[in-house]
Design a protein around this nucleic acid. Structure first.
Length: 432
DNA sequence: ACAGATGATTGGAA
DNA sequence: TTCCAATCATCTGT
C-alpha cells in the first residue's frame, strides 16, 4: 500500500472523527464554538444525529484540509510553505484550531492542571533562609563570619588565632558565595533561554498544531519548575558546603587549645583545696573564669572532667594532689600569719574568694569559714610531711574529709566511708 | 607515629 | 539545669 493511499484512508477516517469531535464539542461547549463560527464564518454544525447535506459538505471540507496537511510532505518546501500559508488563512482554521485545543484542554491538560497549583516549597524556603543567614545569598555582609568570630571568642581562642581563622573562613565563604552565584546565574540564563526556545517553538507549531496560549503558559511553568528543582539541588549542596565549612572552622573541638599553665594552676588549686566538695558555685565559677581568662562553661567543663578523671584514677592524681596541698598549705600559712599580724580576717588569695560559698560539712572546727580550706589542706600537708597514711598495697594517698562527702562514692572508688572523725583525720581503706 | 592528656560534646539521670 | 559518664577531637611529649 502506497503512502498516499494510506494517508487518504487515514484522512477519510480522520475527517469523520474530526466531524464527530466537532459535534461533541459543540454539544459540550457550544458557546465558544458558536463564537468561533461567527468569527470564522463557519456555519454551526448540526446537532449530533442530524444528517443533513450541510454535514456532508463540512465533512468534505475538513477532509480536504486534512488531506492537504497530510500531503504536504510529498511536496517541495516552497510548495509546502505556500500550502501551509493557505491552510493558515483558511476560513475554517480558527474553528478547527479552537475545537482541537478544547479537546486537549478537556482531557490531558485538565488532568495535569490539578497538580499545578503547588504552594511555595517549604524545603526551598528553609534553604533560602539558611543561605541568607549564612550570607551566601542576599547582600554581602559579615553574617557567617560574625558568627565565626563569636564562636571563636566563645571557645576562648586567642585573638590572633581567631582572626587568622576568621579571615580564612571568610575567604572560603566568599568562594562558596561566588560559585553559588555564578551557578545560579547560569541556571537562570539556561532557564530563560530554554523557555524562550520552547515558547517560540510552540508558538510556531501552534500554527499547525492545536496549542493554545494557555498551554504554552503551562509548559513555561513546567520548565520553570524543572529548573527550580535544579536550583534547589544547587542550594542544597551550597548549604552542605557551608555546614562543612562551619564545622571545620567553628567546631570548638577542632579548635581545642589547652588552657595556659597559670589557668590550670588556678583551677587545680581550687579543686584540691575543695577536694571534699569540688563543686564551685556559680559565683566561684565566674571568679575562676575571670582569673583564668576562660568562660564559665569552660570552668564547668574543667571541673566536670576533673572530678570524673580524679575519681576514676585517684592514684594517678596523688602526686598532683600532694603538690597542690603543699602549695595551698604554704599559702594558707602565709595568709594566716599575715592575717594575724594585720588583724585582718581574710585575704583574697588562694581561692579565698570562693571560701565559705559551699558547705564545709558542719564539722566542729572554730576556724573562720574563709580559712577552713586552707586549714583543710594544711592538715593534709602536715600529714604529707609527717608521713601520711598510705595504702599498704597501692601507696595511695587518701585525702582526708572524703569520709564525709559522697561525690566520689562509686563502685570504682577505692575508698569506703568511715565514721565521722575529727577534722584532718585520715581514713584509709585497703579493701581495694 | 604513637600513647596519653585534655578540653568539648552528647545523652541520660536526678 | 546540673552533673555524670562516655566519647570525640585535638594537643603534647616521647
Amino acid at each position: 500500500m502506497s503512502f498516499s493511499i494510506c494517508v487518504a484512508q487515514c484522512t477519510d477516517s480522520l475527517a469523520s472523527t474530526m466531524d464527530d469531535q466537532a459535534r461533541i464539542m459543540q454539544s459540550i461547549g457550544g458557546v465558544s464554538l458558536a463564537g468561533h463560527s461567527v468569527q470564522g464564518g463557519m456555519p454551526l454544525p448540526p446537532p449530533h444525529g442530524h444528517d443533513g447535506t450541510d454535514g456532508d459538505g463540512r465533512k468534505q471540507d475538513i477532509g480536504d484540509i486534512l488531506h492537504q496537511i497530510m500531503t504536504i510532505t510529498d511536496q517541495s518546501l516552497d510548495e509546502a510553505q505556500a500550502k501551509k500559508h493557505g491552510l493558515n488563512c483558511h476560513r475554517m482554521k480558527p474553528a478547527l484550531f479552537s475545537v482541537l485545543c478544547e479537546i486537549k484542554e478537556k482531557t490531558v491538560l485538565s488532568i495535569r492542571g490539578v497538580q499545578e497549583e503547588d504552594p511555595p516549597d517549604p524545603q526551598i524556603m528553609r534553604l533560602d533562609n539558611m543561605l541568607l543567614a549564612e550570607g551566601v545569598s542576599g547582600p554581602e555582609k559579615g553574617g557567617g563570619s560574625a558568627a565565626a568570630a563569636a564562636a571563636a571568642a566563645a571557645a576562648g581562642g586567642s585573638p590572633t588565632d581567631s582572626s587568622i581563622e576568621h579571615s580564612d573562613y571568610r575567604a572560603k565563604l566568599t568562594q562558596i558565595r561566588q560559585i553559588y552565584h555564578s551557578e545560579l546565574e547560569k541556571y537562570e540564563q539556561a532557564c530563560s533561554e530554554f523557555t524562550n526556545h520552547v515558547m517560540n517553538l510552540l508558538r510556531e507549531q501552534s500554527r499547525t498544531r492545536p496549542i493554545s496560549p494557555k498551554e504554552i503558559e503551562r509548559m513555561v511553568a513546567i520548565i520553570h519548575r524543572k529548573f527550580s528543582s535544579i536550583q534547589m539541588q544547587l542550594k542544597q549542596s551550597t548549604c552542605e558546603a557551608v555546614m562543612i565549612l562551619r564545622s571545620r572552622f567553628l567546631d570548638a573541638r577542632r579548635k581545642r587549645r589547652n588552657f595556659n599553665k597559670q589557668a590550670t594552676e588556678v583551677l587545680n588549686e581550687y579543686f584540691y583545696s575543695h577536694l571534699s566538695n569540688p563543686y564551685p558555685s556559680e559565683e566561684a565559677k565566674e571568679e575562676l573564669a575571670k582569673k583564668c581568662g576562660i568562660t564559665v562553661s569552660q570552668v564547668s567543663n574543667w571541673f566536670g572532667n576533673k572530678r570524673i578523671r580524679y575519681k576514676k584514677n585517684i592514684g594517678k592524681f596523688q602526686e598532683e594532689a600532694n603538690l597542690y596541698a603543699v602549695k595551698t598549705a604554704v599559702d594558707a600559712a602565709n595568709v594566716s600569719a599575715q592575717a594575724s599580724q594585720a588583724n585582718s580576717p581574710a585575704t583574697p588569695n588562694s581561692g579565698d574568694t570562693y571560701l565559705g560559698l559551699r558547705s564545709l560539712n558542719g564539722e566542729g572546727l572554730n576556724f573562720a569559714p574563709s580559712l577552713q580550706p586552707q586549714v583543710d589542706t594544711l592538715h593534709r600537708a602536715t600529714h604529707l610531711t609527717d608521713g601520711y597514711e598510705e595504702l599498704s598495697s597501692s601507696g595511695l594517698f587518701i585525702p582526708h574529709r572524703l569520709d564525709t562527702n559522697s561525690w566520689q562514692d562509686t563502685t570504682n572508688t577505692p575508698l569506703v566511708t568511715s565514721p565521722p572523725g575529727p577534722p584532718g583525720s585520715v581514713h584509709s581503706d585497703t579493701s581495694n
